[in-house]
Design a protein around this nucleic acid. Structure first.
Lengths: 229, 229
DNA sequence: ATTACTTAGTGTAAAAATTACACACTATAT
DNA sequence: ATATAGTGTGTAATTTTTACACTAAGTAAT
């Protein structure tokens, strides 16, 4: 195919805020850069969009290369394109977030050459980030805060079977505030997208809680309607 | 500055859905293309992002070139980057919407060479659009539907002084449904961002309605809190 | 087996928000 | 003076939201 479009020296990349939940803390995956600029700084994982990749594919690829995970809920949320955001040239970047259940604790291995290592770091204690990545992260958190109030994305962070307390915990971490237990349960149950299982939590040294599962069928019917917290 | 970043043949553009309200209808500004591909088709106005422009600046420039308007509320809402969305090469485009009060009826003049003409067309009767512009428009409308429920953006479409009926009309057009007059007024007034003026509508052949103004100060205090319809 | 510990699980009343609904008023035009 | 067309207003019923505290169930230690 002939390229007859005008041509500019701009680079288009994708950066990802990968939110992970291990049952206790909300974390994001950061990489420690191995190259200038910002060598030795922590940064959001990202990469140039490939010539034949869609944007979503590109984001999935970045995720996969870092975590070997597929089928993760990802969503683009904002493009950052300040002419000076990258010291070495014009780089426009599209930010994605992903929500990941950190089952067990397989640390992601660093792979590409530009990263020394990758690490899940709790959002309550993040290092200084390279480029404008702090801004990108801030906007990402803001976005999922808003999103979790209207769409049932919290499930993406939990294992298939979970307790209501765990679910509430996720909401509290993302929204950054405590919620009333009884009201939370009343409300979340009233949406009708939870399926109570005949199964109890195991391995806890106290009364075991009932496990629930997210009911995707019921959710599909309800889709479009907004929920709210 | 040395360019040491990798280089790809991709083009980055911005497309705009300019929503306009003339007091009666909701319209968008379309241009009739003068060049292949899609010569003679209607399309969303758009352009390549300039080397030293921020994204917002670029969107504002596109708007300005078409309408001579400045200081208009614009917001980016989604990036479209399917590898095949442009028949002549890879073009990633970032979509913006704008909300514009169509005071009087100064038709925008077509300017750039790639457009035969530009025209405000009612959203109830849009032609087939070039490229994936229908998709871009659909997503834009969806976006402002959601946005108008939570943020007072409807004011951007109205003249500085407006009646409550006009305001309600805007909500109804965007949400695509009728609202109850008394409940609408109760609610919108309860937000406390309207200032009632000592002035009445003029030039109508029936009882003149009271004019209101949007109170930006009060809104600033309230910002962050969501409103809902 | 008793006790201490820890989290699970439940109800209600008050307050606030939402909905549904209809008619008299006022300015203008004829 | 009469017709017309849109303005502007209140209330009761319903639903949703909020605030709030104790008992039940299982585990661990003695």
């Amino acid at each position: 195919m002939e390229q007859i479009l005008p041509h500019l020296d701009s680079v288009f990349s994708i950066d990802c805020v990968l939110f992970g939940f291990d049952g206790k803390e909300l974390k994001i995956l950061l990489i420690e850069r191995n190259e200038e600029p910002f060598k030795d700084w922590w940064a959001l994982p990202g990469n140039i969009v490939g010539a034949d990749e869609s944007l979503d594919q590109s984001a999935s690829r970045i995720l996969y290369e870092l975590t070997s995970l597929r089928g993760i809920y990802m969503e683009q949320y904002y493009a950052f394109g300040d002419p000076n955001r990258h010291p070495q040239g014009r780089v426009i970047t599209l930010a994605y977030y992903a929500l990941i259940r950190l089952g067990g604790d397989k640390e992601p291995r660093p792979i590409s050459t530009y990263a020394k290592r990758a690490k899940w770091l709790p959002i309550t204690d993040l290092p200084k980030l390279a480029f404008d990545h702090q801004k990108i992260y801030d906007k990402g958190l803001e976005k999922i805060k808003r999103r979790i109030k209207h769409q049932p994305i919290a499930f993406e962070l939990l294992p298939e079977k979970f307790t209501l307390t765990q679910l509430q915990h996720v909401y509290e971490l993302i929204l950054g505030k405590k919620l009333d237990k009884r009201n939370f349960r009343k409300k979340i149950v009233s949406f009708g997208v939870l399926k109570e299982l005949d199964e109890k939590q195991k391995g806890v040294s106290y009364r075991a809680a009932t496990l629930y599962r997210f009911d995707k069928r019921k959710y599909a019917k309800l889709f479009g309607k907004e929920i709210s917290f």
